[in-house]
Nucleic acid binder design. Structure first.
Lengths: 311, 311
DNA sequence: GTTCGATATGAGTGTTGTTCATGTAAACAA
DNA sequence: TTGTTTACATGAACAACACTCATATCGAAC
């Protein structure tokens, strides 16, 4: 029957479920409750008269019907997005300038590919990347020296909008065979007698220090390194511990170069935001840059989750 | 912006508006009120921040944005339909038998192409066409000698479901230059002294006689012909008048072979139904045959409208 | 067994799509 | 011109539906 009342909402739902590997995780991405996802999926299955997901398996598997519908989602949703982009260009024009300042060192890992995707669909937008460490990157927006800032601070300043990108886990990195590797997760006290290897930034910019160690009154010695590989090399050679975003270390973990542990019972989670001037937030090429980063990151980065603050 | 809440419903709406050339006509096809279509279109335009249709022109024109979105509809909706068909096959299987009996002579005009489209997507279904005039075609369903009957009678019999296909206008055909051609439409009395040329069927099967002439107490002489071309030839050579469905005579009208006039102020409209056994109505390959006929007919036949009885 | 993480379910609520009843505007006829 | 017809717009009332909240159920790990 073709009169089945199917909507793009259903396709987005199925895609999210398949990608997230579970209803709860899908709900988070869609900024819905788990209940809504469960209800909606059931309603869809009832309407079609076919089960779409294997409820037993974890990660959740799709049935043959589910896979067919997912194939439709993969075919149709990008077409829809492309059309909406074209409409946005018709409305706002398709040219502009986007000078991007980046606060976090490891962000280049995902920012570069995202910029490449973006360039494909907005060839008329001039992309610039501002280098060097900035004391007050959001200030650059108001100075007019940058148009978009990637930051981990949600702090809202007048005239600036912070759009949440995604949440990620900071993992503690240990050399293989380190005594602490026996634990499932590390408590603040575990860092007491360890050297901390970090990027060369002030202490209050390090989530591990500001949110975990400082509150616990622990102040381990620090050693700084400029590059991610250098930090990993120091950890691997047992000069100390480090804390880096999960996505940045995934390739090294696979090779067994270092091992990772969560920080605290539920892990140390941080968020990234794209800050733009309020006046620019509604401009199509700006809004779509943020969308592109979100989509691209979810497709590419392991161990990230939707931002808690809805976009 | 991509977070715009667009749904397949919107695409179907825009497609219907574009094809029907107006909101009112689109509403009829979608089995909605004109108000609903107007509201929904306005909501969509507001959400996108762009006008989609040129309200002034008649038939309604699309803006550049409307055309872009229509292109999306043309790309995406067939994919959706194909996916739903595949799901139906997964559910019910993809094979079956469909013996079709046809009551109306001119129906072969659209039935053949529709059957061709259908065969493409349901290669496993055995299609058969039952020939010859049937006194009680719906009876064949209950006898088990046919599986689907094309009929113009809505009359519901136990165990048989009548699915409306579309409404069409019966046009009165006159030779060019006939005195009655001066009128915009013909009244019952106009037929009083004219010979009526018809297919060889009982009088009570002729809509013109049963619904117009008989109630007015008019009983013109009849002359019968087997073939549509024969009827048209007799009309053109001034042997009498005929009444045929608009779609069946469109090509002859274009060539000026005959001229057509409405019967009555608002025209004489009839409907066609597909009758199937109630037990078969839910089977995917049966339901989709009916859908295919509807879609195909609307795409191909001029001067038809949605059935008044909602499907 | 208990606990934890994940999905299901029922009731209540807010949103939104639809209809109904008009209003308005343009085209056409008298 | 006025009346008539046809098509689209609009506001209020209603109905349907999607979502949330709270809670139940299920399964796996300990």
């Amino acid at each position: 029957m073709n009169n089945t009342h199917i909507e793009l909402r259903h396709l987005r739902l199925l895609q999210a479920v398949a990608e997230a590997g579970g209803l709860t995780a899908a709900a988070e991405r869609l900024h819905l409750t788990q209940s809504a996802v469960s209800h909606q999926l059931k309603a869809l299955e009832d309407a079609l008269g076919l089960p779409l997901v294997e409820r037993a398996a974890r990660p959740l598997g799709l049935t043959a019907a589910g896979r067919r519908l997912l194939a439709l989602a993969h075919a149709a949703l990008p077409q829809v997005d492309a059309a909406l982009r074209d409409l946005a260009k018709l409305k706002d024009g398709d040219a502009g300038e986007l000078r991007i300042a980046v606060e976090c060192h490891t962000c280049y890992d995902w920012l570069m590919p995202a910029m490449d995707s973006y360039r494909d669909v907005w060839p008329g937008v001039e992309l610039d990347l501002l280098g060097g460490f900035q004391a007050d990157p959001v200030g650059l927006l108001l100075d007019g020296r940058a148009d978009l800032v990637i930051t981990s601070e949600a702090g809202s300043r007048a005239g600036v909008v912070h759009a949440p990108l995604f949440g990620f886990e900071m993992l503690a990195l240990l050399p293989p065979g380190h005594p602490l590797a026996a634990k499932k997760w590390l408590a603040p006290a575990d860092f007491a007698d360890q050297t901390l290897i970090t990027y060369p930034v002030p202490e209050d910019r390090l989530d591990l220090v500001r949110r975990v160690l400082a509150p616990a009154g622990i102040k381990p010695p620090r050693r700084e390194a400029q590059l991610t590989v250098a930090i990993l090399q120091l950890v691997a050679s047992r000069r100390g511990l480090a804390a880096l975003p999960a996505w940045a270390v995934a390739p090294y973990l696979e090779r067994g170069y270092v091992v990772a542990r969560s920080i605290g019972r539920h892990g140390l989670w941080a968020e990234l935001y794209a800050a733009v001037r309020a006046a620019d937030a509604a401009r199509a090429f700006v809004a779509d840059f943020i969308d592109t980063v979100r989509r691209d990151s979810f497709a590419r980065l392991p161990g990230i989750r939707a931002a808690v603050t809805p976009p």
